[in-house]
Amino acid sequence: MTGEAGRKAAAADARRAGQVPVPVRPRVSARSMYRLHGVLEPRAAYRWLARLLDRRPVAGRLFTRLERSVKSELFGCQMCGQCALPVTGYACPMTCPKQLRNGPCGGVGADGSCEVFPQLRCVWLEGFERARASGHALDLEVLQRPVDHRVWGESSWVNYWQGKDADLWTTDPAASPLAGSAASGPGQR
C-alpha cells in the first residue's frame, strides 16, 4: 500500500469506481479541523449569513460551490448536505463505498484495507484513528440517523448554521431513528 506501485494500484482502483464512492484520506489534520469547528459554530452572524444565502439563489449557489470545492479537495466531500465530519474524526463516511454512517463494516482487511478497493485504506479506520488521537474516540459511538436523500447538493454549512441538521445523530439509545418529534412528521429537518 506504499510506494509508487501502491499509488498506481490505488489510482487504478479509483478509476474503476464508477458511481461507487472511493475512500479518501483527508488532507488536513483532525486537530486543526476540531479547532476550526470552534470558529464555525453557529452564532448570530452565521445565522444571518445562512438566511441571506437561502434567500439569494445566486449567492447561495456560489457559496455552495465554494463549500463543495474546499471540502471535496480536503475530504473527498460528496455533498450529501448533512455533514457528519465533526463526529467522524473528519474523515468523510460518504466516501465509504457503502456510505456507512455508523462505523466500519466487518470487511476491513487485516492491513486496514477497504473491502471493495483493497488498495485503499478504510475511511472509517482512518476516522477512528484520527478521532482517537485527538481525544474524540467517543464521537464515533453516537447513533447516526438515516441520511435524507433530498438534501444532497445543499450546503451543509448553511443547514448547520440554521440548526437544520440538529437531528443527524443522537447519544440517547432510547431515541427514535425518526428525526424530530412524531408530530413534525418524517424527515422534517
Partner: peptide, 16 residues
C-alpha cells in the same frame, strides 16, 4: 467481526 480493524472499536460497534 471481532478481528477486523479497528479491533479496538469492534466491541463499541456491537454496543451501537
Amino acid at each position: 467481526n471481532p478481528f477486523a480493524p479497528p479491533v479496538e472499536f469492534r466491541a463499541a460497534r456491537l454496543a451501537k
